[in-house]
Design a protein around this nucleic acid. Structure first.
Length: 890
RNA sequence: GGGCGUAUAGCUCAGCGGGAGAGCACUUCGUUGACAUCGAAGGGGUCACUGGUUCAAUCCCAGUUACGCCCACCA
């Protein structure tokens, strides 16, 4: 016998353990012979991270699909693994060092990396354990890590090949520099924020005296400290004010250099003074202007954004070592003292920040490695354009195209230690040799120099996303031609959030197409962001983070999963409210109790149960409904409408099976007719079993537990429910459906009247049907016991006219009368009927107007017109009956 | 400055070219042994605003307002 209450906290870990011990998640386990492969690669979480709500949603959706397809007999691989997360992980370990007063540079590269590996060993299992709590059925035996030997091999292969194809190159240009981590970062890792700032105006005097009465050029800047590195002052060629100044020199105060006035399209004559200082080494726009005009670039800062000396002595000695913001203050002070200060305007400015470090990014002139992304993007754009890979929902394709079509070179080198070290070696003269191993580089160098030389390896590592980009094939064994690679690539669907379309999805598309000649997946499902109840993004600093593990502890993983699925409507963010989780926890309890009820009533599954052999309309009706639910849920899951699928399951289980079927089954279970009783027991058991199947992808734990607990043989003979077979019955009995709908409506009507008339709950009443057809009479007779139980009706009869003092309700062509002599409040009943009739009048008015409209009759489809006619007749009929009832009351 | 999205019950959200829905909350009633983590019955909405298309608009189109997000170099 099932326990009186379901204890998720003890059941869930136990069930998961059983699955894992049995190797139930392994690729292909439970698959039908000869079945098609189905593969999802997990978006690898940071190896040292922990589960947040985004992971919970992301992995719930994947698990639903994976379990669904597994139950459909597909050969399923959910490829698991974690990401080394370069900056994020290094940051954590550096912080740990800082707590102990240590610095990574003091430690040295090797010792530091050891610490990181230690940290990985210590915390690397955390998130995997948390995914298991959630119920994720990944093939853990194939778990990969981006810095595994095999995956590192793939990274080297890709780097070397792209280099040799000319798609990776080294370049000296401006990059986004993070002065805290002291590394370059890519455009994507920069977050532009609007902050309070100021714009100052400085004057640069003309060296050779006034021209057209102008003695100085006034420039505006939000970054005074960079003025020391100015290489020119630019004006627009069409700007009449400065026409005769082009080519003249101005004196740069403090730096005490002479720089030219140049003409360039970049300055906007309408903005400020129309003259722009050009600081090619510290501003992206200026860099382009400087390049076009051969203006020298003068880097002013070191890797921590402190002022340094320059070859041309632009930076006076007393600035050396100053932080850029201290330098700013000093510049402002000195410019004022020198009399070149021309004013200040406070304004909001857009400022770049490192998305991890939260410090202001400094454009810096450095040597970095780049991927020619524009070239790789071409086939990736075409794939989506031509429908070989589809986004769901489709509108994300626009975002993808916009970015891919304007894609910039991808800076892939990072001045970090934790990551894949770039396979490039330099000879004594700086010649670079890119090879997979030092030996190969050495022989290449030998060939180049004609002798053996010492090589220095590039110090830098690769952007984390470089290895993630290979994930769909590197995890399957590439570059080796493994059976798994052959079988599971192309994978099926990628499930991820929109925030990493650029970081990851786009790059997987590029790499997958380039190296595998085939898209990594045919579908990209983009899910929402999980927000808090008020719609704010969850963040630690706001303190509004809901920990999925807390919800699991409080309500069960099943409840959390069902909530996330039920709220995962396409194209909308999820605002997670705890009551929803609580509600779905209750849903689990409801299912548990329903199962317990069937068990108490001896509902045992018959192995050869044949739905077609059932006789009772009650059973044939629930089988019809089951069949509909199966078809609905299957269809919705196939089209990634998780919320619809969850809703269909919920409604069938609670509103059909529990509320009506089991209630209606009660009298059958208590009746003497053994045949009917047995058929109903068997049907109930069958439907419940199918419910467990339908619900399993959403609520894997409670369903698996019930599956086993309801029938001890199952585990022994059929294995796990998770390998059970998903079915679509294709059963329909319209006659039975009409029968039961009639009964449900009648019961509902009676209950409604009773409640409105304040009939005491325990009181029993009689029922009189007026206007009953032969069919109604037959049904009334057959369903008498159900009426007795569900509507507390003792005696049900047919009559020509309604009895005196009865409450009446119109149901189609029937008038349902409850004789309530002594109980009924005549005034209340009259008011109720009047209100009812008013409603009818409103409807009739609307319908009549519509049907009087010639245009409607001519242009609307026939069936719509017919439907409106029918509705009008029904309403009129109903109104007439209400009037009759009213007459009898007076 | 561009792009995307959202506005429907008190709250969180579905839905949809032809009769406004769910869950939670609320009100009333209920311990007939599956379930009070429950059951029954109710109240509650100019479907943001303004126009247009249509026989018909909450739904399609345009605009407005509000909010959110993404992208972007105005010094």
């Amino acid at each position: 016998m099932l326990d009186k209450t379901y204890d998720a906290a003890s059941v869930e870990p136990r069930i998961y353990n059983d699955w894992e011990k049995a190797g139930a998640f392994k690729a292909g386990v439970g698959a039908a012979p000869g079945s098609d492969p189905y593969c999802i690669v997990i978006p690898p979480p940071n190896v040292t991270g922990s589960l947040h709500m985004g992971h919970a949603l992301n992995n719930t959706l994947q698990d639903i699909l994976v379990r669904f397809e597994r139950m459909r007999g597909r050969d399923v691989l959910w490829q698991a693994g974690t990401d080394h997360a370069g900056i994020a992980t290094q940051m954590v370990v550096e912080r740990q060092l800082a707590d102990k007063g240590e610095k990574r540079r003091d430690l040295g590269r090797e010792a530091f990396l050891e610490r990181v590996w230690d940290w990985k060993a210590e915390s690397g299992g955390t998130i995997i354990g948390q995914l298991k709590r959630l119920g994720a059925s990944c093939d853990w035996s194939r778990e990969r890590f981006t810095m595994d030997e095999g995956l590192s091999e793939a990274v080297l292969d890709v780097f070397v090949q792209l280099y040799k194809e000319g798609l990776i190159y080294k370049d000296k240009r401006l990059v986004n520099w993070d002065p805290v981590f002291q590394t370059a970062i890519s455009d994507l890792e920069v977050e532009t924020r609007e902050v309070d700032g100021s714009m100052w105006e400085f004057a640069y005097p003309l060296v050779d005296g006034p021209v057209d009465g102008i003695t100085e050029m006034v420039i505006a800047t939000t970054r005074p400290e960079t003025m020391l590195g100015d290489g020119a002052v630019a004006v627009h060629p069409s700007d009449e004010r400065y026409k005769n100044l082009i080519g003249k020199m101005v004196r740069l105060p403090i730096a005490e250099r002479h720089i030219p006035i140049i003409a360039d399209e970049y300055p906007d004559p309408e903005f400020g003074t129309g003259a722009v200082k050009i600081t090619g080494a510290h501003d992206f726009n200026d860099f382009e202007v400087a390049r076009r005009n051969n203006i020298p670039l003068i880097p002013l800062m070191d890797t921590e954004a402190r002022m340094v000396s320059t070859p041309d002595n632009s930076v006076p000695k007393h600035y050396h070592g100053l932080d850029r913001y201290d330098a700013r203050e000093l510049i402002l002070k000195e410019i004022q003292e020198l009399g070149f200060y021309r004013g200040k305007e406070d304004k909001i400015i857009a400022q770049p920040f490192g998305d991890r470090s939260n410090v202001v990014i400094e454009p810096m002139l450095t040597d970095q490695w780049y991927v020619n992304a524009a070239e790789l993007a071409k086939p990736a754009i075409a794939s989506v354009r031509e429908g070989r890979t589809n986004f769901v929902p489709k509108n994300w394709e626009k975002t993808y195209f916009d970015w891919m079509e304007n894609i910039q070179p991808w800076c892939i080198s990072r001045q970090l230690w934790w990551g894949h070290r770039i396979p490039a070696w330099y000879g004594p003269d700086g010649t670079v040799f890119v090879e997979k191993t030092e030996d190969e580089a050495r022989s290449a160098a030998q060939e180049h120099y004609g002798k053996d030389v010492d090589l220095d390896r590039d110090e830098d590592v690769l952007d984390t996303w470089f290895s993630s980009a290979l994930w769909p094939f590197s995890t399957l064994g590439w570059p080796a031609e493994t059976p798994e690679l052959k079988r599971y690539y192309q994978t099926d669907v990628l499930i991820t959030g929109f925030d990493i379309i650029f970081f990851w999805v786009a790059r997987m598309m590029m790499m997958g197409l380039h190296f595998m000649k085939e898209e990594p997946f045919h579908t990209v499902y983009i899910h929402a962001l999980v927000r808090d109840e008020k719609g704010a993004k969850m963040s630690k600093s706001k303190g509004n983070v809901i920990d999925p593990l807390d919800l699991i502890d409080d309500y069960s993983a099943d409840a959390l999963r069902f909530t996330l699925a039920a709220m995962a409507a396409q194209g909308r963010d999820i605002r997670l409210a705890k009551d929803r989780v609580e509600g779905y926890r209750n849903f689990g309890t409801k299912l548990w109790n329903a199962a317990r009820f069937t068990q108490i009533n001896g509902c045992e599954r018959r192995k050869d149960f044949d739905p077609d052999a059932t006789k009772l309309p009650l059973n044939r009706w629930v089988l019809t409904e089951l069949s509909k639910a199966q078809a609905d849920i299957t269809r919705e899951l196939e089209s990634y409408r998780f919320n619809e699928a969850a809703g269909a399951a919920y409604r069938f289980i609670w509103n059909i099976f529990c509320d009506w079927y089991l209630e209606l089954a009660k009298p059958v279970f208590n009746a003497d007719d053994e045949t009917e009783k047995r058929e109903t027991q068997e049907t109930a058991a069958f439907v419940l079993e199918q419910i467990l199947v339908l619900l399993h992808p959403f609520m894997p734990f409670i369903t698996e537990e019930l599956w086993e607990r309801l029938d001890a043989d199952r585990r022994a003979h059929n294995g796990f429910l998770m390998h059970g077979s998903w079915q679509t019955l294709d059963f329909a009995d319209d006659e039975a459906a009409q029968d039961l709908n009639w009964l449900v409506e009648l019961v509902t009507a009676v209950r409604s009247v009773r409640a409105e008339m304040n009939v005491p709950a325990g009181a029993r009443t009689n029922l009189v049907l007026v206007g009953a057809s032969a069919k109604d009479e037959d049904r009334l007779q057959r369903y008498q016991p159900f009426l007795a139980r569900l509507a507390r009706v003792d005696d049900a009869n047919i009559a020509e006219t309604a009895p005196q003092a009865s409450a009446q309700v119109i149901l189609g062509t029937l008038t349902v009368c409850l004789p309530l002599e002594g109980v009924i409040d005549l005034d209340a009943e009259r008011n109720r009927l009047l209100k009812e009739r008013e409603k009818c009048d409103g409807e009739i008015g609307k319908l009549e107007k519509k049907l009087a409209n010639e245009n409607f009759l001519q242009k609307a489809p026939e069936d719509v017109v017919a439907e409106q006619r029918t509705r009008l007749e029904e309403e009129q009929e109903k109104r007439a009956r209400i009037s009759v009832s009213l007459d009898r009351l007076t």
